[in-house]
C-alpha cells in the first residue's frame, strides 16, 4: 500500500473517531494518537524520505492538509463539547425561583416620625433649621411669654399637666419660639417638631401625648402673604399638587392676625365626602403673624421685624396619610402595625 493510500486511510479513521468522541478526554487522546510525536500521521510523514523528489512535495502538501484538517476538527469538537458541558451544568443548577427568599428582618421608621422627616426635608429645602426645646417646661415659655398670663381664659382650652406652679409639660411647641428668639438674633427660619402634652383621656382621636411641628419665621418685611405662600407649598407637598388652602380668622394669643387653615379634602378633592364630613375642607393647622408683644418680650423690635408662626398637628396628618383610624395604635408599639410603614 502506498503512502498516499495510507494518508487517506488515516484521515478516514480520524474522521470516524472524532465524530464518535463524546468527552474532552477522548479528543485529547486522539490528538496524541494522530498528531503526537508517535502519532500515526507523524509516523507516515517520517516515511517521506523514501519518496521520490516529484512525489515528495505532492504527498507533503497532502499530509499537511490532513494535519490542518485534524487540528481544526479537534478544536471544533472541543468547543462543541465544552459548550455542551456548560449547558448541562446550567441545567443542573436551575432552581425554582418561586421558592421563598431567605428572610431578612427589616424594621420601619415610625409613621409619625416619617411625617416629621418629610416636613424637615421640605422646610430645610426652604432654608429652615430644626430647633428643639424642653418638654418639661417653665410656665413662662409655654404661656406667659406667648401672651397667656396666669388667669387668661385661653389657658382653659389647653388642659395642662402641671409639675409645680411654675413648671409644666408643654402644651404646644410654640414654647420653642421663645427659646429661639431669646437665644439668637433674627432673621430666623426654624421648625420645631416635638411631643406636646394635654390632659385628654386616650381614645381613638385623642391622646395626652401627641406631636406638633412649630414653624417660625422672623425677618424684615415678612407679610401675611408670605405665610400664605409658605403654607401653600406645605399643603401641596403634603397632600398633593392639586390641594388648595383656605384661611379662616381665628384667635391665638401669640399671633395677630391669626388664622386656622383648612386644606381641600384629600379624599374627595373638595366635593364633600365622609372624610371631610361633607365640608370639602379639613382643618390642619393654626397660624398667624407673630404678635408684636411676643417679639418685644424677646428683645426684637416689631417696628423693624415681623414674622409668622404656624403649628401643625402631626398625628392628624399621619392618620390621613396612612389611613390610620385609631390614634392609639401609634403608641402601642405593636410590630405588626409598625412594620407596615
Amino acid at each position: 500500500m502506498g503512502i498516499r493510500e495510507n494518508l487517506d486511510q488515516i484521515r478516514q479513521k480520524f474522521d470516524e473517531a472524532v465524530g464518535q468522541a463524546s468527552v474532552l478526554q477522548q479528543l485529547e487522546e486522539m490528538r496524541v494518537a494522530f498528531l503526537g510525536k508517535k502519532g500515526e500521521l507523524t509516523g507516515v510523514l517520517r516515511g517521506m524520505g523514501s519518496l521520490s523528489a516529484e512525489e515528495r512535495p505532492v504527498i507533503g502538501q497532502r499530509a499537511n492538509e490532513i494535519r490542518v484538517h485534524m487540528e481544526e476538527m479537534l478544536s471544533k469538537r472541543v468547543e462543541e463539547l465544552k459548550k455542551k458541558a456548560q449547558e448541562e451544568k446550567l441545567q443542573k443548577e436551575a432552581v425554582d425561583v418561586t421558592m421563598p427568599g431567605t428572610p431578612r428582618e427589616k424594621g420601619a421608621l415610625h409613621p409619625i416620625n416619617q411625617i416629621i422627616d418629610e416636613m424637615k426635608e421640605l422646610f430645610i429645602g426652604m432654608g429652615y433649621t430644626v430647633a428643639d426645646g424642653p418638654e418639661v417646661e417653665y410656665d413662662y415659655y409655654n404661656f406667659e411669654a406667648l401672651n397667656l398670663p396666669e388667669g387668661h381664659p385661653a389657658r382653659d382650652t389647653q388642659d395642662t399637666f402641671y409639675i409645680t406652679d411654675k413648671m409644666l409639660l408643654r402644651t404646644q411647641t410654640s414654647s420653642v419660639q421663645i427659646h429661639v428668639m431669646e437665644h439668637s438674633k433674627p432673621p430666623f427660619r426654624i421648625i420645631a417638631p416635638g411631643k406636646v402634652y394635654r390632659a385628654d383621656n386616650m381614645d381613638a382621636t385623642h391622646s395626652p401625648i401627641f406631636h406638633q411641628i412649630e414653624g417660625l419665621v422672623v425677618d424684615k418685611g415678612v407679610t401675611m402673604g408670605d405665610l400664605k405662600g409658605t403654607l401653600e407649598v406645605y399643603a401641596k407637598y403634603m397632600f398633593g399638587e392639586n390641594t388648595k388652602i383656605r384661611l379662616r380668622p381665628h384667635h391665638f394669643p401669640f399671633t395677630e392676625p391669626s388664622a386656622e387653615v383648612d386644606v381641600s379634602c384629600w379624599a374627595c378633592g373638595g366635593k364633600g365626602c365622609r372624610v371631610c364630613k361633607g365640608e370639602g375642607w379639613i382643618e390642619v393647622l393654626g397660624c398667624g403673624m407673630v404678635h408684636p408683644d411676643v417679639l418685644r418680650r424677646c428683645g426684637i423690635d416689631p417696628e423693624v421685624y415681623s414674622g409668622f408662626a404656624f403649628g401643625i398637628g402631626v398625628e392628624r396628618t399621619a392618620m390621613a396619610r396612612f389611613g390610620v383610624t385609631d390614634l392609639r395604635q401609634f403608641f402601642e408599639g405593636d410590630v405588626r402595625f409598625l412594620g407596615q410603614f
Binding site: 432654608g127 429652615y128 379662616r248 392676625p257
Partner: peptide, 28 residues
Amino acid sequence: AEEVARFYGYNRIESSLLSGCESMSGGL
C-alpha cells in the same frame, strides 16, 4: 390689621414667597 384683613378677606390675600434680606441656608 387683623380687623381689616378678616373683612377684606383672608382668602383675597395674595400668596407670596419669602424673599428675606439674606438667603438662608437651612439644615440639620
